[in-house]
């Protein structure tokens, strides 16, 4: 890096300037729609009667586009598996990682003990209420995994059971698919939420199978994020 005005930098800046012009024309000519497009209007009108969920985004993610969400969870699983594979081959010998760390300190250890149950409870609250409030399985799962991250920070040498995490993950994934297949048998199609009664609109036990599916997604996402964090933590010796 002798000169800042190399050919490379000029090329990058030209490219970004062109992109900026494209963005500018896109943004300056943009006027927001006055009303919803047909797909969105259909979701807005029929979510309450067809799905029974207050949160329209949840209805789209879990039921209308449920297959996509199954694919998304699969992609996440694949990511966790590849991260474990890539990092597993460079794993530090047992005992060498973790033991070299300084103790994490009284404040972090005690704080973790106090906060961890609350964080886990909050995560469960977020994914159980996914059909009523902003939130859902992915957000709740991320909160669960943040609790695991706190645990990893407080006790760097600790190993949690890989087996428990992978059991939770595969069981919730299997049940998710099983509920989807039940939708074919008992209701209108794969992942149809009407295999359970829709219940009173706006109550916690409503929207058919959505709370169940979102709880399963929450557990699965939490387990996947935890296994990614754990793979990253176990190699932390360099």
């Amino acid at each position: 890096m002798t000169s800042r005005f190399t050919l490379r930098n000029v090329a990058v800046l030209t490219l970004l300037a062109l992109l900026g012009v494209a963005f500018w024309t896109l943004g300056s000519g943009y006027t927001p729609d006055a009303e919803l497009n047909r797909t969105a209007a259909y979701y807005a009108q029929n979510t309450a009667s067809e799905i029974g969920a207050q949160n329209v985004v949840t209805a789209i993610i879990v039921t209308y586009r449920g297959l996509d969400t199954l694919g998304e969870v699969t992609v996440l699983f694949l990511t966790a598996a590849i991260v474990a594979l890539v990092l597993g081959q460079t794993k530090a010998p047992r005992g060498s990682s973790g033991s070299g760390f300084l103790p994490s300190g009284e404040l972090l250890t005690t704080g973790t003990q106090m906060l961890l149950p609350i964080i886990l409870l909050f995560g469960a609250y977020v994914f159980v209420n996914g059909h009523l409030t902003p939130g859902g399985g992915f957000q709740g799962g991320a909160i669960l995994a943040s609790g695991m991250l706190l645990l990893l920070l407080a006790e760097p040498g600790r190993r949690f059971g890989h087996r428990i995490i992978s059991r939770v993950e595969s069981l919730s994934g299997l049940t998710y698919v099983f509920i989807g297949v039940l939708g074919i048998a008992l209701a209108g199609g794969f992942l149809d939420n009407r295999i359970l009664p829709l219940g009173a609109f706006g109550s916690i036990l409503s929207a058919g199978a959505i709370p169940l599916i979102y709880a399963l997604i929450g557990l699965k996402v939490g387990a996947e994020f935890s296994s990614i964090l754990e793979s990253l933590e176990e190699t932390e010796d360099a």
Partner: peptide, 9 residues
């Protein structure tokens, strides 16, 4: 609902 909410997609 279709006149009151933003686009959920």
């Amino acid at each position: 609902a279709a006149q009151r909410i933003i686009d959920p997609v």
